[in-house]
Design a protein around this nucleic acid. Structure first.
Length: 322
DNA sequence: CGCTTTTGACCCGCGC
DNA sequence: GCGCGGGTCAAAAGCG
């Protein structure tokens, strides 16, 4: 799936079902429409409808229970994700040398890469800034090292996603693409759309070992605020946008996929927005809502949801697990 | 019409 | 000096 848009909508899966939101799942919307039309129907027929009302209440309770169940599943998925992520972080800390396939072609570049590997790639967010090694300090003028701060981000995408788009909240303008020798997948070159005032560049290329992983290399630092901070989401949405936490969720035959782009956990932005720390309950709740929102936009998910609501999904394939 | 993307050409550093 | 390969430029095409 391509990260075409920011996930800035929310779906109250466990919220009051009587207050429909704009972008709720079509299936649920349809059910509620039926319920509403049934109420209208009741008003027109003008006869005591205790039985029908009872049935409708029962139906609503059932739908609410389904919503609750789905919310629980999403919460569980979120927790599993956090656990996996922490494991991955631990693993990467212990095995930093396994993260990239270093290019041995060019001396200066490979020495840069080596220093990056040793100093930078401490996590999937990859935004640890490079610090110059002693070797680099000897070879390069200090100013140059300071000017070109290099960081790396690893973003898992789906196999079907052939784009080289790594959503990190900033706007980028592609200025080139090249097939390199070490990797059959083309490398895309991006400049920050605020250029030339913002000198940041980024290179995006698929990993040789796992082509579902996009390796984004950032050069330099943004000299402007994060675009998501400029957008003022006052009112329309629940609380805040997910601009700083791009994520994508989808459902496939092989199972659900939730992809989080964690490249935005820069120390700067974290320091500026402590309320968005990933470990806060508020953030967790928000994350669940955003994932739910994303899921409801996926036609596969809505189809599966429809099957689940009608109680058929487990009968059709009782062994299949999400 | 303006912005973005594509893509071939060009530039430049490095190794031989 | 030459060739190779990565990085960048810029005209053309695409798109909203």
């Amino acid at each position: 799936m391509e990260y075409k848009t920011w996930l800035d909508t929310s779906l109250d899966l466990n919220a009051n079902p009587f207050q429909p939101r704009e972008e709720e799942a079509p299936v649920l919307k349809k059910e509620k429409k039926e319920v509403q039309s049934n109420f209208i129907e009741l008003g027109r027929k003008q006869h005591p409808a205790n039985e029908e009302t009872g049935a409708l209440v029962e139906e609503l309770n059932r739908v609410s229970a389904e919503n609750k169940k789905l919310t629980d599943m999403l919460t569980e998925m979120c927790e599993n994700y956090n656990a996996l992520r922490s494991h991955l972080m631990d693993y990467m800390r212990k095995n930093p040398e396994k993260e990239v396939s270093p290019s041995k072609k060019r001396k200066s570049q490979s020495s840069n890469n080596d220093s990056n590997n040793n100093n930078n790639n401490i996590g999937v967010n990859g935004n640890s800034e490079s610090s110059s090694t002693d070797e680099d300090s000897c070879k390069k003028p200090r100013e140059e090292i300071i000017k070109a701060k290099i960081s790396r981000a690893y973003v898992r995408t789906e196999a079907s996603d052939t784009s080289l788009v790594v959503k990190d909240g900033y706007q980028w303008r592609k200025y080139g693409q090249k097939v390199t020798r070490d990797n059959p997948c083309p490398r895309a070159y991006f400049k920050c759309s605020f250029a030339p005032s913002c000198p940041v560049k980024k290179k995006v290329q698929r990993s040789v070992e796992d082509q579902t992983i996009l390796v984004a290399t950032y050069e330099g630092e943004h000299n402007h605020p994060h675009p998501s901070k400029l957008e003022a989401p006052s009112g329309s949405n629940r609380s805040m946008t997910l601009g700083s936490v791009p994520c994508s969720a989808s459902l496939h035959s092989s199972g659900p996929t939730i992809t989080l782009d964690l490249t935005k956990s820069k120390p700067n932005s974290d320091a500026k927005s402590p309320s968005r720390r990933i470990d806060t309950p508020e953030f967790q709740q928000f994350l669940v809502e955003q994932m739910a929102s994303s899921l409801t936009k996926d036609p596969n998910f809505t189809a599966a949801l429809a099957a689940a609501v009608s109680g058929r999904i487990y009968h059709q394939n009782p062994t299949e697990k999400w």
